[in-house]
């Protein structure tokens, strides 16, 4: 009995040590980003790399950041917010609508739609960027917000999740009862289905929002104007400046991911739900 207890305690201690070391690996770069954004170039090389330097240059680095980006910095963050929110909102709505159609209706081409969406899950999206550029260029849509928002709205994974959720949480009897009461199809969708699917919609929104925010190749190909750049593209440009103030670049990176981190930690149970649906059914 006591031997068994001892092994169990040592297993426990060992597990905690392993998990903690791994945790340091994942969190250290983020912690260091925080430190670096308060340091001058000189302090970065001389001061303790694991703690703040004596001179706290958060404000100076911020001013450098704003000066260097010629006032565009917050515009870039704003652009990212706009693109991600617009793509997230429209993308969620059309995904849920398509998922609902597949789960609850029989229509010609339904089987083909399911096949295309499953194939779409495995489609190499980055490889599609050059073809998208060709089409958007010939439509005269490059260097406009549509070149970012329209492609980002289309999420086969979103439809897949919408399909699973509509199948499991929208009772067919409820739809039929509403039809007998004389409600129109649009009304049923808007008033009933969307309400029932609200948690699923948060999950789909999160996935599209983060994917849009993180996209780099698409804006790199599609956009030229500084005024339209999202933050990923803006920071990439900043990094290539000659002899940059590292602390200012790091502060830009920090401010550029802060909205995502907040969304992440605040809405984490919705992530869990989406990944669970994908893992179990996929």
């Amino acid at each position: 009995m006591s031997a068994a207890l001892r092994t169990r305690r040592s297993t426990k201690v060992l597990t905690i040590i392993v998990l903690s070391v791994v945790l340091i690996y994942f969190l250290f770069p983020i912690y260091w980003l925080l430190l670096a954004s308060t340091k001058s170039n000189a302090a970065m090389t001389t001061s303790n790399g694991f703690w703040f330097a004596d001179e706290f240059r958060l404000k100076e680095n911020y001013e450098t950041l704003i000066g260097w980006t010629r006032g565009f910095f917050w515009r870039w963050v704003g652009n990212s917010v706009l693109y991600s929110t617009a793509a997230g909102a429209v993308g969620t709505l059309i995904s849920v609508s398509a998922g609902y159609a597949i789960a609850k209706f029989r229509f010609p081409g339904r089987a083909a739609s399911v096949g295309i969406i499953s194939a779409g899950l495995l489609l190499p999206i980055a490889l599609l960027t050059i073809p998208m550029f060709i089409v958007f260029h010939s439509l005269g849509l490059t260097d406009t917000i549509w070149a970012i928002i329209l492609p980002s709205c289309v999420s086969p994974f979103g439809v897949f999740l919408g399909m699973i959720y509509a199948d499991s949480s929208v009772p067919t009897e409820l739809i039929e009862a509403a039809r007998i009461d004389g409600a129109s199809e649009l009304r049923i969708f808007a008033d009933m289905v969307l309400r029932l699917l609200a948690p699923a919609m948060v999950t789909i929104f999160l996935f599209i929002f983060v994917a849009t925010w993180n996209n780099f190749l698409l804006p790199l190909m599609m956009l030229n104007s500084d005024a339209l750049k999202p933050i990923t593209l803006g920071l990439y440009g900043m990094m290539s400046y000659f002899d940059p103030t590292y602390g200012a670049v790091m502060q830009g990176a920090l401010l550029g991911v802060l909205p995502l981190i907040v969304l992440f930690l605040g809405l984490q149970r919705f992530w869990q739900a989406g990944l669970a649906a994908g893992a179990v059914k996929g």
Binding site: S97, A101, F107, R110, G120, P131, V135, C153, V154, E185
Partner: peptide, 26 residues
């Protein structure tokens, strides 16, 4: 038919963003 109406917005954008570009690049 109603099913298609709910499918249409996604299908149209899918066409514009995935299918047409693939054909164009071919």
């Amino acid at each position: 038919m109603v099913g298609w109406a709910f499918m249409a917005p996604f299908a149209l954008l899918f066409l514009l963003v995935f299918i047409v570009p693939i054909l164009a690049s071919v």
